[in-house]
Design a protein around this nucleic acid. Structure first.
Length: 190
DNA sequence: GTCCGGCTGA
DNA sequence: TCAGCGGGAC
């Protein structure tokens, strides 16, 4: 006979963050534990990772960062050079938007990335997912960054029957409600 | 041959 | 609202 439960299970976010502490991969765009992420690096990696695997991105990411270490350097590059460096990654609109956004940040924002998800969302090539991811990772904002897989997981978790893409808004609300205020205290633990 | 960890333009 | 975008993985 099963023992009566005397304590309840930790929340989903607690369990996920505990898993992350043990299993997270070492990736070139991740800041060392306890250190703050550079928004330029997070942005560059997130754009490259759109529809593209970690394995395919890693080499390109290192190459871009070595050649253009700051958003100002990237903004000063010729678009032809950016596109040539991007060759092989696919979805070349990403490279054109990357360069355009770098120019906006460098020339209209003094080289500082927008400080909120909402403001990031206005940059070319930055949509709902990417703005949330950058703000969450670089600014510790309480943002749910939902990709297509997260949408499926949340839909199953909450048995949402609404077909996609109508369900997107509801799924985002459900996911946002799972994001704890104190996520940073756990995920930044050394 | 099919399917992707998104965004944009129409 | 949705087709199209590129290359790799299965």
């Amino acid at each position: 006979m099963p023992r009566a439960r005397t304590s309840q299970q930790p929340s989903l976010s607690v369990r996920l963050l505990a898993w992350y502490d043990v299993h997270r991969r070492v990736l070139p765009w991740r800041a060392p534990a306890g250190k703050r992420a550079d928004p330029y690096r997070v942005w560059l990696s997130e754009i490259m990772l759109q529809q593209t695997t970690v394995q395919a991105v890693a080499g390109y990411y290192r190459k871009f960062l070595a050649r253009w270490p700051t958003v100002g350097a990237l903004a000063a590059a010729r678009q032809d050079d950016v596109l040539a460096a991007w060759a092989g990654l696919g979805y070349y609109a990403r490279a054109r938007n990357l360069h355009a956004a770098a120019k906006v940040v460098a020339q209209e924002m003094g080289g500082r990335f927008p400080g909120t998800a909402e403001a990031l969302r206005a940059l070319p090539g930055v949509g709902a997912y990417t703005s949330g991811a950058i703000a969450a990772i670089a600014y510790d904002e309480k943002q749910a960054a939902m990709d297509a897989n997260a949408e499926r997981v949340i839909a199953r978790l909450y048995a949402v029957e609404t077909p996609m893409p109508k369900a997107k808004a509801e799924l985002h609300r459900l996911c946002q409600a799972l994001v704890p205020d104190w996520a940073k205290a756990i995920s930044c633990r050394p």
